[in-house]
Design a protein around this nucleic acid. Structure first.
Lengths: 349, 349
DNA sequence: CAACTGTATTTGAACGATCAAAAGAGATAG
DNA sequence: CTATCTCTTTTGATCGTTCAAATACAGTTG
């Protein structure tokens, strides 16, 4: 066994030239079928693999995409990004791409990283999670026409998604909370509260809107107003908010996150012992599963797949081809559990 | 603004040769101080960054390490790997290394990935999580003398770590459960149970051993035997196991995971209403934090740092220098919380 | 038969860095 | 004055691939 085979060594072995072997790999249609077969045979026999660095040097493509790891926050909601990242990696891998991670404390540091990673030319593009409108990061990338797709809408103030200059894939939170609310309506609840975050966050307001739309006919605007509470994310805050909602006569609650739902569920169970809590969370995190909490599940695997599709379109397309900006809104799925904590009996439905 | 600066363009600008500029970057001591200053100035002025691909092609180093994303399991314990990965990325980044992710369904597929990633020569080494003795992966990597460090001991049957042929960093689970048990002893508990997994898993047995050693004097062997329960990981199983322990007179319990602890805590609270549950989990996952559960925290950040240190030693050292195999066992930390779920009152200690 | 067509293959250069060895400039010694 | 040594800088080759253009060859065509 000598050294690793290269194009040149293969070519010599076959009595061909480098370039023909190269063509057999990258542009098979240019090569005579008979030759192609011979080349493929020896490639298989020798286990030849093109050297990534050499290829990258010449083509200026690394088949590597960057993903920024967000600072670990509460970790409950972080779990969903974990699943996303996993799925992203798998999907990209199938198409010969890889994910390179990088960490950054804030958006500014993230941009510095972009610069660095692009300058050394080892990344072809980026996948961003959680952009906001006027996001310095997307602006920076757009200005340099670096390929990127975001998981999450930019939430531009105008509310008009059409003018967004970059592709994104997101989950329709509004549809999710609407479905959750409708489910509770179907179970006979009327005074269904919404436990979310302080107004102003795109995601939060969207989720609230779904709840409000579902109750549009069942409740008066005044009631809607009373039954909507906004608190910072967290279990304790969730319990606090739920207490308020209970005081205002809520018999069920739809939450903007599983953290909130966890706190709320505890509060509801304490208030109405014996009854399974009519609390629905968001994100279907492992905690929700462990606690038997119903929750709205984001189809992160599908999101990752769609993002990869868009990316491939951009990266594998002809160099000058102008790929249209794509926006995809995915429907979440309501996952029903007994809702009463790990030991509660199943719903008698 | 023309095109990206290269060594050659810098050299021309300075009236020097490529190699001198290269030396200024990679071996400053070989360059006259005055020249070095001039070079550094123009590097700063032009924002020059060496092209990673070209460098990689020549040096056969990518400054990229591979990390396999495990299949998402329960996600509760997955959170700890998430933190680890984050810290790993940050630490490597500080030293000019990057993390490339890849997914694999099983060990065999993982090995195929190694092969692929190494052949195309874009990875310098790997960081593995969760190895076991006789692990095909570590054997494969060792046989090819690919640099790698594992997070987790290989748990070889002999129990003798000394003969392990590769470097690892791990957390001393035994010390963790011992500390937890001692804490409960200090609080007046005597019949302290252990809720773990079925015997046979290295990690699980290690954690059980810590509990047993702390109770060595307080309990008879028979009691120890009765107060140790092994069940598959999960909240429901934890509750089930805790029921058993309560029947056998346990007043407190140390668990091998937060999932188990979560179920146990629920069970204990139901059995002794009013009292905060004397349940201690393991891993200090977000769930534990959210539920106010005490737990043994693994210093994953430190583990990541140590792993990076070892890796740097191997990769940045002289090519022929034989780096000694390193084993590091880190002490976990007991994180105390009220233990009574999100709404329970704090301990009246 | 010369001129054209199209297909299949080859050649030389380039990508941007580093390695190995040579060369130039001073200093020191014999 | 030459030889030797050290310090600094330069030269030419090389890593393995792809690009752009050239070549070879067979088949049409007027």
């Amino acid at each position: 066994m000598t050294s690793r085979p290269t194009l040149a060594s293969l070519a010599e072995q076959l009595g061909l030239s480098r370039q023909t072997v190269s063509n057999a790999i990258n542009a098979p249609e240019r090569v005579k079928p008979e030759t192609l077969r011979r080349v493929n045979d020896t490639i298989a026999a020798t286990g030849y693999r093109p050297n990534a660095a050499a290829r990258q040097l010449r083509t200026r493509r690394s088949r590597n995409l960057g993903f920024r790891l967000m600072p670990v926050e509460d970790g409950i909601n972080g779990a969903i990004l974990d699943r996303f990242l996993h799925s992203l990696t798998e999907n990209l891998q199938e198409h010969g791409y890889r994910v390179t991670l990088f960490a950054a404390r804030d958006d500014e540091a993230e941009i510095r990283s972009y610069d660095e990673l692009l300058e050394t030319s080892d990344l072809d593009g980026f996948v961003l999670a959680g952009t906001h409108h006027g996001d310095a990061r997307s602006d920076w990338l757009l200005a340099r026409s670096v390929p990127f797709v975001t998981f999450g809408r930019p939430w531009n103030v105008s509310g008009d998604d059409k003018d967004c200059a970059h592709s994104w894939v997101d989950v329709d939170g509004r549809a999710g909370t609407a479905e959750a609310t409708n489910y509770l309506l179907g179970r006979g609840h009327r005074r269904i509260g919404f436990l979310g975050w302080p107004a102003g966050s795109g995601v939060g307001d969207d989720r609230r809107a779904g709840w409000a739309s579902a109750l549009d006919e069942a409740l008066t605007p005044a009631d809607l107003d009373a039954l909507s509470v906004g608190v910072p994310d967290g279990t304790r805050q969730g319990a606090e908010g739920a207490r308020l909602l209970l005081e205002r006569g809520a018999t069920a609650v739809v939450c903007a996150s599983d953290s909130l739902a966890l706190g709320a569920s505890e509060q509801f169970r304490a208030a109405t012992p014996g009854n399974p809590a009519a609390v629905i969370g968001f994100d279907d995190t492992p905690v929700a599963a462990a606690m038997g909490l119903s929750s709205v599940a984001q189809p992160v695997e599908q999101a990752a797949k769609e993002i990869v599709d868009i990316m491939r379109h951009v990266l594998d397309g002809a160099p000058d081809e102008q790929v249209p900006v794509t926006h995809r809104l995915l429907k979440p799925r309501l996952v029903l559990r007994d809702g009463g904590g790990p030991l509660a009996s199943p719903l008698s439905s």
